[in-house]
């Protein structure tokens, strides 16, 4: 394992099955079916990306994506984005509480959606101010900055934040 800075020799590519293949340096051995993961998905999104083999052993920890070969960097970003789905909420239309359950009708950057939230604790605010809402199926929806929402949405969110 190496914790590297810029490393132009490192390469990732896709094989015909669509799986990622990793090679640390031009002469090194290749590892198949690897995956990439963010270490700080909420606080330092574009730093500290871990490349892991299929048994979840770390092959390499990238402190930053800068300095990688353009194609490899594009592929890593594509993979990271494909694994993530936490739509940004742009407006809250209605929050209905009934029988301990909340139904949030929201608009997100990905489209309008209705969330069913089990517990008050599933709506939480990180220290950075970002609000995360977890729905019953385990999906995460986020509000990057509550202050940027319209007044009505803001008051609805604040009422349920705690």
């Amino acid at each position: 394992m190496n914790t590297n800075g810029p490393d132009a020799g490192l390469r990732l590519w896709r094989d015909e099955r669509g799986r990622l293949v990793y090679r640390a340096a031009p002469e090194a051995e290749t590892s198949e079916n690897v995956r990439v993961a963010r270490c700080f998905p909420w606080t330092r999104r574009d730093e500290y990306v871990s490349i892991r083999d299929k048994d979840e052993k770390e092959l390499c920890l990238l402190r930053s994506l800068d300095g990688l070969a353009a194609e490899t960097r594009r592929l890593i970003e594509e993979e990271l984005n494909a694994d993530e789905f936490a739509p940004r909420i742009t407006a809250v239309e209605r929050v209905e509480t009934m029988f301990d359950l909340m139904t949030w009708k929201v608009r997100t950057a990905s489209g309008p959606v209705e969330l069913q939230v089990r517990q008050a604790e599933d709506v939480r605010q990180l220290d950075s101010g970002r609000v995360l809402i977890r729905d019953h199926a385990g999906g995460t929806f986020q509000i990057e900055n509550v202050a940027e929402l319209d007044a009505r949405s803001r008051s609805l969110v604040e009422e349920h934040l705690g």
């Binding site: 015909e16 494909a82 694994d83 789905f85 936490a86 729905d135 199926a137 999906g139």
Partner: peptide, 27 residues
């Protein structure tokens, strides 16, 4: 099925080649 954080992918590989890839959420 390639499980990710929030979104997973369903891959169909035919004769060793990726034929289809679908993305779906936790739901």
């Amino acid at each position: 099925i390639v499980a990710g954080a929030g979104s997973s992918r369903f891959r169909v590989i035919r004769q060793g080649r990726l034929a289809e890839e679908l993305r779906f959420s936790c739901r």
